[in-house]
């Protein structure tokens, strides 16, 4: 069973032409995939479909064998927090929460993630601290408001939040675009390694092919996507 499997997927934003048509795409458990595509090629839309935030008009999106369209809206919301960790381009953190509280967010909304975090030893906080330490964030930062951190630090906190409670799938939407070249490399290294260690599958979308070398597989969205409506997919 694939971790993610898309079949005959077709999606259009309301009152627009279809911007996404994918015959077949699969991501195996633990696999790291770099999905390349220029802006407007439907990367974010695809991630939103896999995350169950939006639902495909036709075709199937299966995650862990579950057909997301068959779940209720609130069922999809629960499924997302239970099984998927998401890292955005930037502004990943709630500015009014501390670093630690940001990392613990999924545990507050998902019993499953909390249980898995606890299973790693003690309280979810312990798991969060371990993750933050592993991502090289100094302990004196942990209680600080997230808004006080540098962009690079924020992205690492976001990664810790995505990883806590061992979700099966990590979705990353250009998470390095706000970083300089040296930090991009370091962040990618952390990302791929942590996913490997956690046994999580990783779908990384970016327009920047130079980042692709660390991934198990590289896919080109412009080739996958048969809908070639120019800029129909909003960034």
């Amino acid at each position: 069973m694939s971790l993610v499997e898309l079949t005959d997927l077709r999606y259009a934003w309301p009152r627009q032409r279809p911007c996404l048509e994918i015959g077949h795409f699969a991501l195996a458990a633990g696999e790291t995939v770099f999905l390349h595509g220029p802006s407007g090629s439907g990367k974010s839309t695809l991630l939103a479909l896999i995350a169950g935030v939006n639902v495909a008009g036709t075709g199937q999106v299966r995650v862990l064998g579950e057909d997301l369209a068959r779940l209720s809206p609130s069922g999809r919301d629960r499924f997302r927090v239970d099984h998927i960790g998401i890292v955005f381009q930037q502004f990943n953190l709630l500015p009014y929460l501390s670093v630690l509280e940001n990392v613990l967010l999924p545990c507050r909304f998902s019993a499953l993630r909390r249980q898995r975090a606890q299973a790693e030893g003690g309280r979810p906080e312990a798991a969060a601290r371990r993750l933050l330490a592993g991502l090289d964030l100094a302990p004196e930062l942990w209680e600080r408001p997230a808004s006080r951190l540098s962009v690079g630090q924020q992205q690492r906190v976001a990664l810790a939040r995505a990883l806590i409670g061992r979700p099966a799938l990590i979705l990353a939407d250009e998470p390095t675009s706000a970083l300089d070249a040296a930090r991009q490399r370091a962040f990618l290294e952390l990302l791929t390694e942590e996913c490997k260690r956690a046994g999580a599958g990783l779908l990384f979308v970016s327009h920047d092919l130079r980042l692709a070398e660390r991934f198990g597989r590289v896919e080109d969205l412009t080739r996958l996507n048969r809908a070639q409506a120019e800029a129909a997919c909003a960034a």
């Binding site: 919301d77 709630l94 967010l105």
Partner: peptide
Amino acid sequence: ILRSVGAGPR
């Protein structure tokens, strides 16, 4: 962010 951690539109 809230949606990404499972908060639905409702």
